[in-house]
């Protein structure tokens, strides 16, 4: 689920990251309903974090005169999400995938933009780690967050 082809330029890299954020927001809607208590709150918080990244990206892309890709009405799930286990699995994958898109923006950015991308990558990686812990997956960390296999 991590992007394997490098984006052609800065605008493409940021547009890809935005598409990943759209998908993450949508996925958390599916994930949240299969979780309870603290996990459900964590899903809500994660969704809110992705929304604010989305908004910042839309602003950044429109200010730089780039094309702002539109959200889709729905996304195909890689497997049925029917219970807590599959919801947690998807949550881990969504964060890793989004981390991958943010990582891909790093070579195309400098200064404040790169720092923002690094913060986004880091936040995704930390959330993936938390979801692995919640799911009981070990190890809960990966050596190179966001790097394609």
């Amino acid at each position: 689920m991590i992007p394997r082809t490098a984006p052609a330029g800065p605008a493409q890299a940021l547009a890809d990251a935005l598409a990943a954020e759209y998908a993450a927001i949508w996925a958390y809607g599916v994930i949240g309903v299969h979780l309870a208590d603290a996990a459900r709150s964590a899903a809500r918080a994660a969704e809110a974090a992705h929304r604010s990244r989305r908004d910042a990206l839309i602003l950044q892309l429109s200010e730089s005169g780039g094309q702002v890709p539109a959200d889709r009405a729905g996304y195909a799930l890689p497997y049925p999400v029917t219970d807590r286990a599959s919801a947690l699995k998807l949550a881990v994958e969504i964060e890793e995938r989004t981390a991958g898109h943010w990582r891909a923006t790093l070579p195309h950015t400098t200064g404040t933009d790169r720092n923002r991308a690094l913060t986004a990558l880091t936040d995704c990686a930390v959330r993936a780690t938390r979801w692995r812990r919640t799911a009981g997956v070990t190890p809960i960390t990966v050596p190179f967050p966001g790097r394609p296999d």
Binding site: A99, L106, L118, T129, I140, T141, V142, P143
Partner: peptide, 12 residues
Amino acid sequence: ALLGSIAAARAT
């Protein structure tokens, strides 16, 4: 990208 992954890994 490599350095970004290393920074993120240390955060995790």
